[in-house]
């Protein structure tokens, strides 16, 4: 299933906000790059790790890709590594993947961004502007840390509000959520607690789940989780996965070579067959029915709901 990789050359690096670098990537021979769906991400190999970044540039037969990378100090190091790159250097990427696509039937788009979650929202806004779809943007960010505000406002004059206080954002969203014409779809990307508030508020205002779309991805780490026991039925092993260590990491330490790509529960590569035990599914790959059946799990993010899991490995 794995698609071939793309070699990309860094054509330009600019600072879009403090700690946010925008990288322009091109094919080394200037060839046209694959088109992508607004809201897609590019998985980049960052010094041995794979990190996903939302594409913010023009999606149709583009000659360059742009991503904006927030430097995360406590992260796994991928964003720090990217911040140290220089123009002319090359990166390896997987072709764009879409998991946060615009709804073609939307009559209007209400786009809600928190912090660096502005990147897929930027992409959605670009598409809405290109196809003439009415749009309204609320972007919450820390004072002085709003990335791409000017570009957003140029794409949709008078339809973008960049808000740098929580109270201001909460008031603006509470007002906006109750007056959207039917046919509007809401898209939200930001830190998990931010999105929980947005989704909760919209649901409280009678929004059906089908009109609410979130990108829970790559913003901040999942909570470390409780330790649990793992029994490997094929190789006859038993060990504990401590809090803060993923099952994938634990298996790698034991010498297992598990296929994996995003390590964030999105790509589906690291699926493992579960024999017994209740899984705390934290991925965005398996369907709800698959999660309920507890027959498989994404070992990069998911853990045991109770003390023990039996894996057919």
């Amino acid at each position: 299933m794995s698609a071939p990789t793309l070699e990309l050359e860094i054509a330009d690096i600019t600072e879009s906000a403090p700690e946010v670098s925008t990288l322009t990537l091109k094919h080394p021979e200037g060839r046209v790059l694959p088109s992508f769906t607004p809201g897609s991400h590019l998985v980049l190999e960052c010094s041995g790790k794979a990190n996903a970044y939302s594409l913010i540039s023009d999606p149709v037969m583009p000659t360059s890709y742009q991503i904006s990378v927030l430097r995360i100090h406590e992260g796994s190091g991928g964003s720090r590594w990217l911040h140290e790159r220089q123009p002319g250097e090359r990166l390896t990427a997987r072709p764009p993947r879409s998991a946060f696509a615009p709804q073609l039937k939307a009559r209007k788009q209400l786009l809600i961004a928190g912090g660096i979650g502005v990147t897929p929202i930027f992409s959605h806004l670009r598409a809405a502007a290109a196809w003439g779809i009415p749009v309204e943007v609320l972007y919450a960010h820390r004072p002085g840390h709003g990335a791409h505000c000017d570009e957003l406002k140029t794409l949709a004059p008078g339809r973008v509000r960049c808000l740098d206080s929580r109270a201001e954002f909460a008031a603006a969203f509470a007002e906006a959520v109750i007056r959207q014409p039917i046919g509007t779809h809401l898209y939200c990307c930001g830190p998990e607690p931010f999105m929980d508030i947005v989704v909760g508020t919209a649901r409280g205002a009678g929004w059906p789940p089908g009109r609410i779309h979130t990108e829970r991805f790559g913003i901040d780490a999942l909570d470390p989780g409780d330790p649990f026991e793992v029994v490997l039925t094929e190789s006859n092993q038993k060990f504990t996965v401590p809090s803060g260590i993923s099952l994938l990491e634990a298996l790698e330490k034991k010498g297992f070579d598990i296929p994996n790509l995003c390590r964030q529960g999105v790509c589906g590569e690291c699926v493992l067959p579960v024999r017994t035990g209740a899984v705390l599914h934290r991925d965005h790959f398996l369907t709800e029915e698959e999660k309920e059946s507890d027959e498989q799990m994404m070992c990069c993010v998911s853990r045991a709901r109770e003390e023990e899991l039996e894996i057919a490995l």
Partner: peptide, 8 residues
């Protein structure tokens, strides 16, 4: 085929 731009 997944169409790349529209997602259809």
């Amino acid at each position: 085929v997944r169409l790349p731009d529209s997602g259809a």
